[in-house]
């Protein structure tokens, strides 16, 4: 018996149609089925933000979203950002030292993007709240804050 379902959605403006188990996570879909490994996986339970993507412009943990929840949604991953030229967020992180190992970086960038779309001129409090779901073990967040403040 075929337990798979058909889902259709958009990833980085490209149409995607998949026949997959309904409980397959968006993170597995991106990394394993679509080879979009820019989205990382770290805790698997929505606590670290390494797998952050934008769903219809909203910040989500791709490890928590399942295939059956994806019909007709638009997903933006790190690969969909700065395709031609680097996004100002990406440039700022490079210039201010906003990453080291880089594993939290794709998720962090999308969290910053969601933050700046909601608050184009965020207060310090809004920055802290907006990025509180994205763990970085390397930088101590100093470079990340300097980057966000420089944009």
């Amino acid at each position: 018996m075929d337990m798979n379902i058909e889902v259709q959605f958009k990833v980085n403006h490209q149409h995607v149609k998949l026949h997959i188990p309904p409980l397959c996570s968006l993170n597995d879909i991106l990394r394993d089925h679509l080879s979009l490994t820019g989205t990382k996986v770290s805790c698997g339970i929505g606590r670290c933000g390494a797998c952050t993507v934008l769903k219809n412009g909203q910040i989500v943990n791709s490890c928590l979203l399942r295939a059956f929840q994806l019909n007709e949604v638009e997903i933006l991953t790190i690969e969909g950002l700065g395709e031609e030229n680097l996004d100002p967020i990406q440039r700022a992180l490079i210039e201010e030292g906003g990453f080291q190992c880089g594993y939290c970086t794709p998720g962090m960038i999308l969290a910053i993007k969601a933050l700046l779309e909601k608050h184009p001129h965020p207060t310090q409090e809004q920055i802290l709240e907006g990025l509180s779901g994205n763990l970085c073990r390397c930088t101590g967040y100093g470079g990340i804050l300097r980057a966000v403040n420089s944009i």
């Binding site: 979009l36 820019g38 690969e79 700065g82 992180l93 490079i94 990453f99 880089g102 794709p106």
Partner: peptide
Amino acid sequence: DGVEKVTGSL
């Protein structure tokens, strides 16, 4: 390694 890391291409 900056560009590769911020674009997710690394």
